[in-house]
Design a protein around this nucleic acid. Sequence first.
DNA 1: CAGCGAACGTTATACGTAACACTTGCTCGA
DNA 2: TCGAGCAAGTGTTACGTATAACGTTCGCTG
Lengths: 336, 336
Amino acid sequence: MARGSTRPTSRDVAQAAGVSQAAVSLVLGDKWRGRVSEPTARRVREAASELGYRPNLAARNLRLGRTRTVLLVVPALTTEFFAEVYTGAARVAAEHGFGVVLYPSPEGVGPARDPFASAQAALDGVIASSMAADALTAIRGDQLPLVMLDSDPEGSLGAATVNLDIADGIRQVTEHLLSLGHRSFLHLAADIPSWTFEVRARELATRLADAPGTELRTIRAPISIEGALNATEAALAAPGPRPTALVCDDDKLAAGAYKAVRRAGLRVPDDLSVTGLDDLGLATAIDPELTTVRLDAEAFGERGMRALLAVLEGRPPEKGDLPVSLVVRGSTTAPR
Amino acid sequence: MARGSTRPTSRDVAQAAGVSQAAVSLVLGDKWRGRVSEPTARRVREAASELGYRPNLAARNLRLGRTRTVLLVVPALTTEFFAEVYTGAARVAAEHGFGVVLYPSPEGVGPARDPFASAQAALDGVIASSMAADALTAIRGDQLPLVMLDSDPEGSLGAATVNLDIADGIRQVTEHLLSLGHRSFLHLAADIPSWTFEVRARELATRLADAPGTELRTIRAPISIEGALNATEAALAAPGPRPTALVCDDDKLAAGAYKAVRRAGLRVPDDLSVTGLDDLGLATAIDPELTTVRLDAEAFGERGMRALLAVLEGRPPEKGDLPVSLVVRGSTTAPR
DNA sequence: CAGCGAACGTTATACGTAACACTTGCTCGA
DNA sequence: TCGAGCAAGTGTTACGTATAACGTTCGCTG
């Protein structure tokens, strides 16, 4: 956008090159083949770089009615997971001449009157994590093309969805723990209403229902080390037999659980096997390293962007969930 | 931006309300006091909400030559530090009717032809971390008002700077370790060329030069757990007396160092005291909890945004560095 | 030599908004 | 009685761009 001293416009370039503004637009828009001669085109390009011309994107957007910019709505950026999702989405976008702008639903900022008042400056579409669902009504109001990440394929009001195969990840975790001999499970669940967490709870319950002689308890905590610490500490202090396996909804919760285990004078994995989900850097920073489910966040972002491009072009988006894989490290072992 | 079936414009609203487009603009722009009657204003507002009218921001931006949107340029979002900076900046921005858009210099995406081709859709100014300096030339080319975060106040080409008092943090770390009795120091430095890291090295060297009988070695690593692990492992395996204190450029490096210490069969803090810098969630997730320097990332973002607003309004930005504080936890103790 | 495409441009227009410059009717004070 | 002043609007314009529609000049073919 302009400074105090206004920037050169395409008309200024035209004047400098001795051509019409339309010719400038043609040359700089790379639509001049067969319409403008090579020498003239060169003159235009030289004049443009001479003046330091930058097209006014607001004007371009207005004219074209499209911006080649999409919005990625994510929950507060407190883990690197969504940073990687962004990276993947941005790469695919760049390959198609699109840009990606990030909208972290601002924690503590309080919902702006209209969360998109400014970011929506110019958007062709939106990719939104189901964890930032509160912003969704505003988006739907805008009727923008929408792709949901990790969201219920049924309940998404017809929006395209791109999902990680979380259920399969939980299945692998469960089978791993069962095969080690665990029978008494504790589920440390995130207390955020989001489809991605519902899937974890449902799959875990289903699998254990199929395994005779198992039992499952569930506790909830906000996704933070502090929250997980408190919830786990309370659960460990509860009367009755201690569970031998703790399945956490994500790695951060697992890190909090580690602290609770230490405080209780117990050890991971000897007294309690712990699993996470995400495979963030955190998973290998803690001791022992965490057995967790590896999610390919970058691929997730790439897939999300490709789906949005498909929607924009009226094509059907790719189907099928993205595969995940169990990474076995030192935080799980056979129960004593 | 518009869907296939075009969105209603202010003219459509005007027609529905039986007034002119100008009146709609006045009412919705809240500039109607004394120009439009209360009942008419109400009719306009009702028609607008009836039709689901949303102003076309591209048109507004073009008309006004300003967007009330600023760009926050950060290095790859691999820690929560910049997430908090964003939160602070976004809060202040919202209070002034501005929006903030994030531009994480995309790791592995490769510099777009013009890094701002799309994000710059409409920007009034830029806040940039000195750690993302590669993008800077492009910004300067745009001549946008600029505020630099953690950057050399001298060498910033006249751009306003907002700095954390990192030097004071390192001073506090050094005094803490000296008072515990440490004399042999190792500095695990980030191998990124950025002013904020130069300050750490300089201050540490200066302080130790003033303390008789001390020695200092420096090793470098990329900011990742893996990188820090490798560099520290090599240093610990080197011949000669082992240092007793390891000063890390940030918490993530410290987490990597922990792993190297464990692999060497040593323990923190008994065999080696370790300090970090940032006070991320990671600092309390690892065991023992990390003695580190607390940076108020949110305040940093707030200050940055306020500085940019000042520049935009032609006022001089606030001076003075933001204070930081040492947080002593379990990773430091007296040398044996 | 009529006529017909290329080649090389130009002119004109619209995108949707905000704001300036007007108009019209009324009230009110001198 | 008359004009100043105000309320309550409307008409028009410009922001900078991309493109559809329109000329003009050639060279060439039949």
